[in-house]
């Protein structure tokens, strides 16, 4: 435990912070963007933990397609004009 990697500490702290913001933000669009950002951070942590396959998959799906699907859903809700 004497040599704690500084990059790991920064990535772990940012991951917790962005996850907390994603859960606790008031507007739906903010929550979705924070979820996408925390997904990008998770890609970085997978790369640090030597898992390139998982990192590629998470980069394409977690921060690309899931965000797109969420945003297409929000476009339907915005129709009426509230929220």
């Amino acid at each position: 435990m004497n040599s704690v990697n500084i990059v790991e500490v920064i990535v772990a702290g940012l991951l917790i912070l962005l996850g907390f913001l994603a859960v606790n933000s008031k507007k739906m669009i903010t929550a979705i963007i924070y979820l996408s950002l925390s997904s990008m951070l998770a890609v970085l942590s997978f790369a640090i933990m030597k898992a390139p396959d998982v990192a590629i998959t998470e980069a394409v799906i977690g921060s690309g397609l899931i965000t797109a699907v969420f945003l297409f859903t929000l476009l339907v809700f915005k129709k009426v004009g509230d929220e």
């Binding site: 991951l15 996850g19 994603a22 859960v23 739906m28 929550a31 979705i32 979820l35 925390s38 997904s39 998770a42 942590s45 997978f46 933990m49 898992a51 998982v54 998470e58 977690g62 899931i66 969420f70 859903t73 929000l74 809700f77």
Partner: peptide
């Protein structure tokens, strides 16, 4: 949370944490 969309976001955050834990 009471909003359905935010519940799904929370589920995704949970899943992300689980994946990071299993890899670690």
């Amino acid at each position: 949370d009471k909003n359905v969309i935010k519940i799904i976001v929370s589920l995704n955050v949970f899943e992300l944490g689980l994946n990071v834990f299993i890899i670690s």
